[in-house]
Amino acid sequence: MTTQKPTATRPTDTGPLPVRGPGPVPVTLTVNGAEHRVDIEPRVSLLSALRDSLLLTGAKRGCDQGTCGACTVHVEGRRVLACLTLAIACEGRPITTVEGLADGDELHPMQREFIACDAFQCGYCTPGQIMSAVALLDEGHASDDDEIREWMSGNLCRCATYPHITAAIRAVRDTTSDPS
């Protein structure tokens, strides 16, 4: 076996890192293209900062432990769970929420198809589903229904609207990738 316990190679001579908190500290978040300054404790999740400080209540708190997907937002263009992300760790990393998808009064195609396909009942999971679905098409994992289901498995729906969600995603995929 090739295991070596750490051996000295060179000393380190770095100064201490700045420490922030535990009380509220100013944090700058870029959400849907706009900069916001909030005073929050470092322990505050991105989900709480969005909902409670910025009053962007699209992202939902389902489980608060990474299992349901209701809090899905985009950070640096990738879908992530806002409940397991610290807001302070998102400084310098642009955030998009469901509130930022529409272009003025013009809904995002995914939002339109969720309505057209009747892809929600209570609607609690819907913002997370939509944010996940938009990212899914960017990631290119929607070639067939099986692939859509697998790559959307991180978004649970208590109302079991899954077939309609799959239909909405398929519809957007087919309109946006149709070359004609």
Partner: peptide
């Protein structure tokens, strides 16, 4: 959740030293 302090490191040596 318990209160926390937070630091962001940009160099490996800083992070290792801090923790």
């Amino acid at each position: 959740m318990r209160p926390l302090t937070y630091s962001r490191a940009s160099a490996v040596a800083d992070a290792v030293h801090a923790v």
